[in-house]
Design a binder for these strands. Sequence first.
DNA 1: ATGCCCGGAGCGTCCGGA
Length: 258
Amino acid sequence: MKIASYNVNGINGRLPVLLRWLKEAKPAIVCLQELKTTSDKFPLNAINAAGYSAIWHGQKSWNGVAILSRKEPLNETRRSLPGDRTDTNSRYIEAIAHQIVIGCIYLPNGNPYPGPKFDYKLKWFKRLSAHAKKLLAHDVPVMLVGDYNVMPTELDVYKPEKYIDDALFRKETRAAYQRLLKQGWTDAIRYKYPDKRIYTFWDYLRNAWGRDAGLRLDHFLLSPQLISRLKAVGVDKHVRGWDKTSDHAPVWIELKTK
DNA sequence: ATGCCCGGAGCGTCCGGA
């Protein structure tokens, strides 16, 4: 069973690319980020026609998350993180499918550092960690999937020295990610490839794709119950080379069906 | 130090992204 994550950077503008990739990759579950559309403009008909059901939480212009499922029904468990009722950003949606709790995450970018956006990023991270801890305590299979906007280590950045004061690589950001892992989560991509340079994002600027100047930002955090079921992981890197493509590539993991 | 490229909103040219 393949579960994928894809920051589409605008689901309506990206629809042809998304549909082409769905047809090719056939994931059972897909977590999408950066829909950049209101909920009423979510392209449900096209997604349904491609063979997927969906739950989504949109927002005008920015953010927006969705979970797609090929066969199994999605039972939505929440559509925001607890801990701040004033936060109106659509950055989290969660459902149960295949007896797995699946949290779809679009963590704030946080640039520029320092400033209120960076503070918001760290606050959001704290709320995520608090919720993640509760999920682990339930002792059910859980995965927290999506665009974390964090390069966890120097291996995840094409040129680490350029990113020292970037919100995605600041020591506070990396520390927050490590604290989250320490609860008992496993970064599935890194677990399978401890020493490999793997990127999931290439900026549109400065010919980043052509130079392979990438970042690893999209992560799968697995609860302990899922580790023994992890068969394979990968990045559909070629999709980043398509016309009118996102700046992220789809990332996926393959689990043994229980 | 700045612009470089994109999508969205909306119609000139911003903002936010990472």
